[in-house]
């Protein structure tokens, strides 16, 4: 069974075996507004938990994307680079950002579950 967790930087992460799929939450897209530019990490690079692993830009401003866990980047979603508006349309499903082969499964335990994140998101936008 796959497990979805959330970070305080508004990323979601879905773990299947040792492969994690990472994207930004619907709440994040609502705060950002229309996304018009995306930059992803390099395939094959190693990223560290809480380090930057990409950029999204709205018409208003640029924001870093962080990785909630450490690992090696094994796949990228080119379709959101070609058409960043897809992130606004389907952020928590088809508009994933990158996939990692994760280094340390225990890092998942530091993240929030859905209910915890919903409360966190509500409070952080209040």
């Amino acid at each position: 069974m796959s497990e979805v967790k959330y970070s305080k930087e508004h990323e979601w992460i879905k773990l299947e075996g040792e492969i994690a799929t990472i994207g930004i939450t619907k709440h994040a897209t609502e705060m950002l507004g229309d996304i018009v530019f995306t930059e992803l990490p390099e395939k094959g690079s190693n990223v560290e938990k809480d380090g930057t692993a990409g950029v999204v830009e709205s018409t208003k401003a640029a924001s870093d994307v962080y990785t909630p866990v450490s690992g090696e980047v094994v796949d990228l979603n080119q379709s959101i680079v070609d058409d960043p508006s897809k992130i606004n349309q389907d952020p928590e499903n088809s508009a994933w950002f990158f996939k990692l082969k994760i280094k340390d499964k225990s890092e998942m335990d530091t993240l929030m579950n859905k209910d915890e994140y919903d409360i966190f998101a509500k409070e952080s936008s209040a």
Partner: peptide
């Protein structure tokens, strides 16, 4: 107002 419900691109 910086934007309304539909967002900057749609308003533009």
């Amino acid at each position: 107002p910086i934007q309304y419900a539909e967002g900057i691109v749609e308003e533009h």
